[in-house]
Each structure stands twice: as structure tokens, then as C-alpha cells.
Amino acid sequence: MSVLTPARGPQSIYSINPVAKLAASLALSALLLVTIDWVSAAVALVLESVLFFWAGLSPGQFFRRTAAIWIAAPLAGLTTLLYGVSAGQTYLQFWLIHISDGSIALAVATVLRILAIGLPAVVLFATIDPTDLADGLAQVWHLPSRFVLGALAGLRLIGLFLQDWRQLELARRARGLGDTGRIRRFANQAFALLVISIRRGSKLATAMEARGFGGDVVRSWARPSPFGRREWLLIAIGLVIGVVALVAAVLAGSLNFVIG
């Protein structure tokens, strides 16, 4: 299951070690989660927007990949607007709904922070190949090979599960069982898919163990997972964006620690 198909030259973000992308995303998220204010989130979002052009995604690919973030952010902001902490002037109050200056500011900060954290994470993960990620986790972070390879095998089976679901649906329709009772049909197909997945998982585990994947010896890797200057640069960029956003919030006097 291919991720995307642009050119993957030596200077492309696709060629950067996936572990560095994961670390950069986690570092940026950790810094932005310290405070909830619109200044830090807006500054981070502006700086990230400049780097999105480097990701190699076309506008169509970018918005398709991040569609869930664009939907979730306004919904979270609307909930915060209606039921957030009230402060300052009140504009509307009806039962549990209380819209005030405080809830408006908190809603704007919530929307911007979700975008600032979610968009770079989705963009970075859209450029990650599962096999490259497994190589990086085992060779760079030195995670147990059994865990890494098992997770990779499970991830690779997601596409097969989708195909199995489609085949089950077509088979039931061919037998005249797929036109009525939508809830019952879904439950039956889900149970059948569970049975198929357990059988396939057992066969896969046996096959991997027969090939020596469960041994105690230190295993070798077919492809090296280099970690060099570009990877450290990406992590540094994530840290710099987070630090600049926090400094901007401090200078603007809008820093609002989540815990405190």
C-alpha cells in the first residue's frame, strides 16, 4: 500500500528517517500543549505553513490528508464557545450555554492549537513508509525486534482486511443477504471478518516463527536506517517552532499554562 507517489530525491522529506519525523512531531506537540492561547498557536501555525511546501504534497493531497483535522478543529471550537469557561462580558446565556469573552478567546485558541498540532503530524506521517518506520524504530531507537516486526506485519494487513470486508459484502449480496437489515448485516460481517483475521494472524505468526523472527539471537536488517544531519535538523526545526511560539505568547502576555 503506497503512501504517495512524488519524487523521492535525496533532498526530499520522504528520504528523512521516519523516527526523526516522529520525534519532531512529538517535540512540537509537547511544547504547544504547555499553554492554551491563540498567540502561540497562531505563530506556530504560520511557521508550519511555510514548511508545508517542503513536504512535497500537492494542495489536493494536503487537504485530503488533513480533512479530518479541518473538521474536528471547528467542532471542538464550537463546543468550547458554547460551554467554555465564562469570563468578561457575556453575550449569550441560555441554560448550559454561556458565550462570553473568555469562551470566545478559549474557542479561538482551541481551534488554532488543534490545527497547529494536528496538521504537521498528519503531513509528516503521510510521508512515512511503514517498513522504513519499522527499520528506524529497531535500528535507531533499538526497540525489540519482535514488537517492531509484529506491529509492521499487522499494519501491512490493514489493506487485506479492507479487501476481505469488500469480498464478504459482495458474497452476501450474491446470495441475496445484503439488501436488508443493515445493522444485522454489519454485525454478521464484522464477526466473519474477526474470524478471518484470527485465522490469518495465526498463520502469519506460525510463518514468521518458522522463518526465525521469534528467535533470541540479535537479528540483522536488510536495509540500514541512517540518522544524520537532516534528521537532527528536522527535530531542531520542530523544537524551534515550539520555542518561538511560546516566546511570542510570553511577549504578548497571553501565556496560559494548561497546568497551573
Results as ranks from 00 to 15, higher is better:
192 A>F: 03
205 A>C: 02
185 R>F: 00
173 R>N: 12
208 M>K: 01
202 S>C: 00
179 D>N: 11
181 G>C: 05
185 R>N: 08
184 R>V: 06
168 L>Q: 04
184 R>N: 07
199 R>W: 08
196 I>F: 04
189 Q>I: 06
204 L>G: 02
201 G>K: 02
190 A>E: 07
196 I>G: 01
185 R>K: 04
187 A>P: 00
202 S>M: 12
211 R>S: 01
201 G>H: 02
208 M>V: 01
180 T>C: 05
204 L>Y: 03
185 R>I: 03
196 I>H: 01
187 A>C: 04
176 G>V: 14
204 L>P: 00
180 T>S: 14
182 R>Q: 13
178 G>H: 06
192 A>L: 09
177 L>I: 05
192 A>Y: 03
203 K>I: 04
199 R>H: 10
213 F>K: 04
176 G>W: 15
210 A>K: 09
185 R>W: 00
203 K>Q: 13
195 V>Q: 08
175 R>H: 11
198 I>W: 15
207 A>P: 01
195 V>G: 01
190 A>W: 12
200 R>N: 07
196 I>L: 12
182 R>T: 14
213 F>N: 02
178 G>W: 03
193 L>Y: 02
193 L>A: 07
168 L>G: 01
211 R>Q: 05
199 R>Q: 11
213 F>A: 01
205 A>S: 13
171 A>D: 12
183 I>W: 12
178 G>A: 14
184 R>C: 01
194 L>M: 15
212 G>A: 07
204 L>C: 05
183 I>F: 07
198 I>E: 09
197 S>A: 15
198 I>G: 03
188 N>P: 00
202 S>W: 14
201 G>L: 05
206 T>E: 15
169 E>N: 11
192 A>D: 13
210 A>L: 15
178 G>D: 11
199 R>A: 09
209 E>Q: 10
208 M>S: 05
169 E>F: 01
171 A>I: 10
208 M>I: 00
181 G>L: 07
189 Q>P: 00
197 S>E: 08
181 G>Y: 02
210 A>S: 15
170 L>P: 06
198 I>R: 11
185 R>Q: 08
204 L>F: 06
190 A>R: 12
194 L>A: 15
199 R>K: 09
201 G>R: 01
202 S>Y: 12
202 S>A: 12
177 L>M: 12
186 F>R: 08
190 A>C: 09
186 F>P: 00
207 A>K: 04
197 S>W: 10
208 M>C: 04
205 A>R: 05
175 R>V: 04
213 F>T: 00
197 S>R: 08
207 A>E: 07
202 S>R: 12
179 D>G: 09
181 G>F: 04
203 K>Y: 12
207 A>H: 09
181 G>A: 06
202 S>K: 05
208 M>Y: 04
178 G>N: 07
206 T>V: 11
170 L>H: 14
187 A>V: 15
211 R>D: 02
205 A>F: 11
208 M>F: 06
171 A>F: 09
195 V>N: 06
175 R>K: 15
170 L>C: 05
191 F>V: 10
179 D>Q: 14
212 G>N: 08
173 R>A: 12
187 A>Q: 13
180 T>P: 00
205 A>G: 06
190 A>F: 12
206 T>H: 14
168 L>I: 03
210 A>T: 10
212 G>C: 08
211 R>F: 10
191 F>R: 14
177 L>F: 03
182 R>S: 13
204 L>T: 04
187 A>M: 10
188 N>H: 10
189 Q>W: 03
200 R>Q: 08
173 R>T: 13
179 D>S: 13
195 V>P: 00
199 R>T: 10
